[in-house]
Each structure stands twice: as structure tokens, then as C-alpha cells.
Design a protein around this nucleic acid. Structure first.
Lengths: 368, 368
DNA sequence: CTGAAAGCGCTAACAT
DNA sequence: ATGTTAGCGCTTTCAG
């Protein structure tokens, strides 16, 4: 190996060097650093030698043998919805505590580069011998799931449910919020506020979250004899803006938007482009409760997805499946409260269910 | 190795298996997959056998030999400022194209867990044999820089300048925007708008961006005989809110906020808490031009940090340094335009410099 | 408890 | 161009 670079590649300290300096065998060094049995005496000698030499075990070599890279592959569709950076940050911390690290792949790009990309990306992860894969809001093809299974790599779906072509859950662990229940809750609340002409900006119907939220909302309104006007938002800001205009042209007085990110676009159109009063002229409800929803500039009533608990569940599922058991992990749905802020009117009659009323101005909140 | 798990760990196809099936030597297989010389005939045989077996080379084993993991360690302080998710997304794509992957570490946590965390995190990266480290808005201690250098791992600083205790750049590649120049530009613009009672919400003064922006702004105003009122924002939303209140109590009619994320907080306080008109009562300018700055709800005049070009420069620096050369990489400062939106008044006299005037309402823009 | 030896799956000289 | 032979740095039997 030519030393073409005098500054770099200086000290490649191996366990052998440490062993020599400590006057023990190389395997003794290995034992000390892998936490196997070793006498206090050797441990001390090895530690001293290692510190003096600045030795750190090579994780690659270790992984090659143990078959455990302690790397979790994370695929995430996009990062412009604040929900995901938040989730990523929490996941990163939680895994770090457990000694795992995240190799990240952003599938979507500017505008959902779609399924194709996801596949290549998963292949790269498999090549890197990740111990498991977390797919955040990314759908996996049946073929891909099969490939992961064959490679022995567990997959956990975050914020996305999935059912394979056989109608089963494909044995995939999947953590979502209770999207159907949440959407119903929103429908109930809007009804209680006395709205009768209701609109809905749908999330991407190719996703379970999009479908479930729409389903829960429409079903519940249907039970009250109301059919909402629907427009596609596709989880995209520009689509949501267009949808808002169309909905207002039809004269709705309340809109449920498929996620907060789109709801902000709707609010911008309503307040600043059309000069309407929210909630006076029209009420708006979102879904997620990202931090921005609480900002005075938006002050959005929304259904909270409990990111923290969803991440906890994800890590738990991950550890369980990594711990050797390949128990069929039931899909977990974690419910969250409706957070009522200034984008909706006061209910005309008492409402039930998990509700938090936020008073942004006074910076306080009380649970109803 | 006990087969305690009948479903997992099924197929561990190695190059040896492929060689056997293809009727060639194991090294032939290696050559085909590592792009070395191989005849068309063997290549075909090997490919066929590999496909049939579902073989994929083990990157870990490869890395152990070549000494190249093709993994880039990314340390980022926090993700709640939209600037970083955006940068991350672009970096991820750019590196993926080059065959590199990102191992991510989020240093900050909820509230800057500070330097200590960074160190441990860098150690973990080194353990994983990352080929290089990108530190985004994270300061590195001299000791840490030295450790990386000793380990032969190049470091690139993104959006952070750094000077070691000897007053040199520590030989680190560092990509930033022209923070001093940008802040001066903002000062000039505010002056041209006729403001004389000016406030400044400082970014974290422990960071080069915070210091440089403050310095450029204060110097330029000073040259015009104006001393701005200053408050610390620390790049934190809550601090920025408090700063806004204090500044208004002192009666300023224009505020330069150290970044967009804090500027949104300032705008919320001004418009919704104090009921003020922006820019009628007070003008506000931010720094970054994150997507949200263009949203009608904020419509913020701000200095654009050209994320795309900054990431391009980062990748370029990375590839250069990975390509074997350890040329001292000069610090790169990339300038951006002042994007004028509705949070500032019309200038009273002509202004010079790189300026873009956005008309959010009509969704168009023209370059002055 | 410790050392010697045998690999993990692959690449990189060497020969042929 | 292909096969043979050493290892990369470490963990893990297996003896002692």
C-alpha cells in the first residue's frame, strides 16, 4: 500500500499492536473490547496500551464476523413535512442509546420519485448489511418485502400500513396512528360546531394514511347524512392550494385537510389570497400537529400524531425483532388527541373524546 | 451457528457459491462485481449464476480490504430549522449519485446538548470507518479535529466556519454562505428604506454564522452612524419571541433577525400578540430563505443561502479530498441574493447589489 | 482465564 | 484473462 499521502493513513492501530504493547495475545484484546471474560489484570494492561496507542476496534471487521452491523437502514420519502425531521431526530436518539446507527436514504427527492427508487435504495441497504430497515411513509412492493425476508432483514413500517396482494399484513411490523379514528373524531367535532357544508382535501390516496383519514372522515359524516366535497391534495402544497380554491368556489364552511403541511397552504390561500376570515368564514382542521401548527401565524386545530410514542413503538418493535424472535408483530395504531386551536369555531354542543384545547395567545392549555 | 430462527438467515449466498455454480474461481466472481477485467464469457456465466442465486456482494467484506466504506458520516445539530432537512435531502441525493451513503448523527437533541455529545458521536463514526465526516452547523473541538486527522478521516464543515486556537483554519474544508456580506446587504437595504431606529435579534454568538451576521450588520450600520439595539436569539424560537418584545419596548421600526426560523417567531409576536402591522409599524428581515419564508402567512424578506450551491460545493470538496489529494481546501463562501417580500417597506432610494423582488400574491418575481 | 488457530466474505498481488 | 494464495481486523472455538 503506497504511502502516497504522508498526512493521512498515519496510524492504523490494530488489536495486534495493542496486544504487543500490553504483552498479551491478540484475542485477549478482543475479549476486553467485546466485553467477554477477562481478568482485571489483563483488562487493565490492555486498556492502558489501547489508550496509549489510541486504539479503537474496527467495527467493520467485527460486523463481518458477528453478522451484526448495528446499522439500521432508514428510508424516508421526503423531509419537507416537519413531521419527518422530528421523527428522524427522535429515532436517531433512541437508536443511538441502543448502540445502533442510522443509514439514511431519502427516496422521494423533490417530488416523489416513486416506487422505483425505493427498490434500488433497499438493495443498497441490503448490500451494506443493515440489521433492519425502517420505512417511513414509504410503500414497499411485495417483491421487495420478499427480498428482505429472504435476506433475513426485518422491516418495520413507520406511519404507513401495508397489506400485500394476499390481503395479509405481509408479516411486517407497522406503526401508525389511528388514522380512521382520528378522522372520525374530526368529523364529530366539525358536526358539533354546526357545520353542514363540509369540504375535504385528501391526502395521497396511494398511501394508507391518505386513504384511512379520508375513509374515517367520509364515513362518519355519511352517518350524519352529510357528503363532503372532496379534492385531491396529494400531500403537496401546490395541490392543496388549488383544492382550497375549488372547495371555496363550492361554498363550504369547513375544511378537513389531510395533513398540517397542506393545511398551512389552505390557510394561506383562505386568509391571504381570498381575504377570508378563519374560522368566521370557514373553519380548517389539519392532521399531525407539527410544531408549526401551534405558531400564532397558523394556530391550527389538528389531530395530533404522537410522534414520541410512535417512535418508541418503532424502536421496541425493532429491538424485539432484532432480539431473535420473529414473532409476527401485530400492527400498532397509536391514537392521539384532537388539539383545538383558533382555526375552528366553538362547538355548539358538548363534544366527547380525547380533546386538548390550546389557547395560543395565553400560551396555556387545558384538557377537556 | 444455531438455526434458532427457521425463517430468517436463510440464504447467505457468497461469491464462493456463485463461483461453484458458474464453474469459475471465486476471484473471477469478485472481478466481475468489482468491475475489474473479465472476459465476456465469464462475465455472462457469473452474472447468470449470481442472478439465479440472488447473490449480492457483501460491502462490509469489501470495505475491510479496500479501506473504503463509502459511508459519509453526517453530524447535524438539529433539524427543526427547515434549512437542514432541505440540505440533508440534497446532500443525500448528491452522494447517492456518487455511490456514497450517509450515516447520520443528530448532535443537538431537543436543545443543543453541546460539544460533549459531538465528540462521542464522532468517535462512533470513526469506529464505523466512515470515509469522511460532514459537520453541519456543528463546531468541532481542536482535539476532535486532531483525532480525525490522525485517523486519516477528512472533515468538511457545512454552514460553519472554524478557526483553531492557532488562528488558522485547521486545514478543514469549510463551506458557508457570505454571512458578513449578506448582513451588510441587509443593513444597506434597511438604511435605503429610511429606517433609523433599528433592532437586531442575534443568532447564537458561539457560531460563526451568528457572529458574522451580527458583525456585518453592526459594522455597516455603524458606518452610517447608527447603533442597533441588540438582543440574543440564540437561534431559538422562545428566545427570539422574548427578544422581539424587548426590542419593541425600545421602539425600533425595523428588525434584522439572525435566521428565518427566529424571524417567524418575531413575526408571530409582532402581528398576533402585539397586533402590529408589518411592515407598517415595523419591518422584519430574516436570513436563509427557507421555503416557508415565501408562504403568504409570513411573506418574509430574507437573505437567501443558496443551499443547492452550498451542497454542490460540499460534495465537490468531499470528492476532492476523498480522491487522494489532501490539498488544503480553501474556505468557500457562497453569496446569495436578498429576496425582498412583504415584510419590508419600499426603499426610498435606489438600492444596489443582488436583489430579487418577490410578489407573493401574484406568484411572480422579477430580478432588479 | 488465556493463547493458538481458524475463519467471516471479499480483494489484490502473484503466478499461470 | 484466470486461478491460486494471502491476507483486511476482528471474533470465536478449542486446547492448555
Amino acid at each position: 500500500m503506497a504511502d502516497r499521502n504522508p498526512e493521512r493513513e498515519r496510524t492504523k492501530v490494530t488489536s495486534l499492536d495493542v496486544a504487543a504493547k500490553a504483552g498479551v495475545s491478540q484475542s485477549a484484546v478482543s475479549r476486553v473490547f467485546s466485553g467477554a471474560s477477562a481478568s482485571a489484570a489483563t483488562t487493565a494492561k490492555v486498556r492502558a496500551a489501547a489508550d496509549a496507542l489510541g486504539y479503537r476496534p474496527n467495527v467493520l471487521a467485527r460486523s463481518l464476523i458477528t453478522g451484526q452491523s448495528r446499522i439500521i437502514g432508514l428510508v424516508v420519502a421526503y423531509l419537507d413535512n416537519q413531521f419527518y425531521p422530528d421523527a428522524l431526530e427522535r429515532l436517531s436518539h433512541a437508536l443511538q442509546v441502543q448502540g445502533y446507527h442510522i443509514m439514511i436514504f431519502i427516496a422521494g427527492g423533490a417530488q416523489g420519485a416513486a416506487e422505483g427508487t425505493g427498490d434500488r435504495v433497499i438493495d443498497r441497504m441490503l448490500d451494506h448489511q443493515v440489521d433492519a430497515i425502517v420505512a417511513a411513509s414509504v410503500g414497499l412492493s411485495d417483491a421487495l418485502v420478499a427480498r428482505c425476508r429472504r435476506a433475513g432483514i426485518p422491516v418495520v413500517l413507520f406511519n404507513r400500513g401495508q397489506i400485500d396482494s394476499c390481503g395479509t399484513r405481509a408479516g411486517l411490523a407497522q406503526i401508525t396512528s389511528d388514522n380512521i379514528g382520528g378522522a372520525r373524531h374530526i368529523a364529530d367535532y366539525l358536526l358539533a360546531c354546526g357545520h353542514a357544508s363540509i369540504g375535504h382535501v385528501r391526502g395521497w390516496q396511494g398511501s394508507s394514511t391518505g386513504r384511512d383519514r379520508t375513509m374515517g372522515f367520509v364515513d362518519r359524516l355519511g352517518a350524519a347524512g352529510i357528503v363532503p366535497r372532496q379534492e385531491d391534495g396529494e400531500y403537496r402544497r401546490d395541490h392543496a392550494e388549488a383544492a382550497a380554491r375549488k372547495l371555496m368556489a363550492r361554498g363550504v364552511d369547513a375544511i378537513f385537510v389531510g395533513n398540517d403541511h397542506m393545511a398551512f397552504a389552505v390557510l394561506d390561500v383562505l386568509r391571504h389570497e381570498m381575504g377570508l376570515d378563519v374560522p368566521g368564514d370557514v373553519a380548517v382542521v389539519g392532521y399531525d400537529d407539527v410544531p408549526m401548527a401551534a405558531w400564532a401565524g397558523y394556530d391550527l386545530t389538528t389531530l395530533r400524531q404522537p410522534v414520541g410514542r410512535m417512535i418508541d413503538a418503532t424502536v421496541e418493535a425493532l429491538l424485539a425483532v432484532l432480539g431473535g424472535g420473529d414473532q409476527e408483530f401485530a400492527a400498532q395504531e397509536i391514537g392521539g388527541p384532537l388539539v383545538v386551536r383558533g382555526s375552528t369555531r366553538m362547538p355548539l354542543r358538548p363534544v366527547t373524546g380525547d380533546i386538548i384545547r390550546h389557547n395560543t395567545k395565553r400560551n396555556g392549555h387545558e384538557r377537556l
